[in-house]
């Protein structure tokens, strides 16, 4: 209620001023409204309705709603985390494969299948963050070393430990992708209610994220089928790995 009042009053008063003193009207709104934000190529926040309407007029394709700053920040950190996560996944499987396959040659096709899928995901996110000019994580070399150590370490502990590692990692990653998909679907729903569309880019991104999430959860099933639960200190191992994953996600979202 108060917001409605606030937004109508100045606009109701301004026109009369504009006629009397043509030089004052730009002074007033510029102090109140023009943030330095706009100069960094960002679109207006949603709550500033008039400004948002103005940007809709800018739109390259009709009916596509420009993302607001919070949405862009969300996508920025989401894509960065996803790329870091897939980098880690590729390296974990790459490091696990030789020791695991050596003692259990029948797992070779499974390991190769999972590795190939992760490599595909990694390629997808590399392309996405290059296209959308998202900064990769600063911790890149750290994650590289940590993921290789984790993959190799669990593989040396045995097949069950390696599978428990896969289970723990894929559980965290699956949850993470699920959260992202939920947020994006929520945006899509809200935008469609307004009669606008999210644009092809976002629709494609949602489809892609869903596909990747399903594949990650499929790896989780494979791991459980291959006796992940029989790893020796199962609770300790999975909890440490899951905690590590969550920390890595938290860090990659920020730096």
């Amino acid at each position: 209620m108060s917001h409605a009042l606030l937004s109508t009053r100045p606009t109701a008063r301004l026109p009369s001023r504009r006629i009397a003193y043509p030089l004052l009207d730009f002074l007033a709104p510029s102090i109140c409204t023009s943030g330095p934000r706009s100069r960094f190529h960002s679109s207006a926040p949603v709550d500033a309705q008039p400004a948002a309407q103005a940007h809709v007029a800018h739109a390259g394709k009709p009916g596509v709603r420009p993302l607001n700053d919070d949405q862009r920040d969300f996508l920025d950190s989401a894509l960065r985390v996803n790329q870091a996560g897939e980098l880690a996944a590729v390296l974990i499987y790459a490091a696990q494969t030789p020791p695991v396959v050596r003692s259990h040659p029948h797992l070779r096709p499974l390991m190769k299948h999972m590795y190939d899928q992760e490599a595909g995901h990694f390629k997808t996110f590399n392309a996405l963050i290059a296209k959308h000019r998202v900064r990769p994580t600063l911790m890149y070399p750290v994650w590289k070393a940590a993921a290789t150590a984790l993959g190799w370490g669990t593989a040396v502990m045995g097949r069950e430990a390696a599978m428990a590692c896969t289970e723990a990692v894929e559980t965290e990653i699956g949850t993470h992708y699920n959260e992202q998909v939920r947020v994006l679907l929520d945006w899509a729903e809200k935008t469609e209610k307004r009669g606008e569309s999210m644009g092809e880019e976002m629709t494609a991104l949602i489809t892609e994220l869903r596909r990747i999430r399903d594949e990650e959860l499929e790896h989780l099933d494979h791991a459980v089928e291959h006796d992940a639960k029989e790893a020796k200190p199962y609770e300790l191992l999975t909890n440490v790995i899951r905690g590590g994953c969550r920390t890595a996600i938290w860090i990659s979202e920020r730096v």
């Binding site: 190529h41 800018h58 739109a59 390259g60 394709k61 996508l75 644009g199 880019e201």
Partner: peptide, 10 residues
């Protein structure tokens, strides 16, 4: 952050 191609920049 995140650069989109679906609309022009302001």
């Amino acid at each position: 952050s995140y650069h989109s191609y679906d609309y022009n920049q302001p």
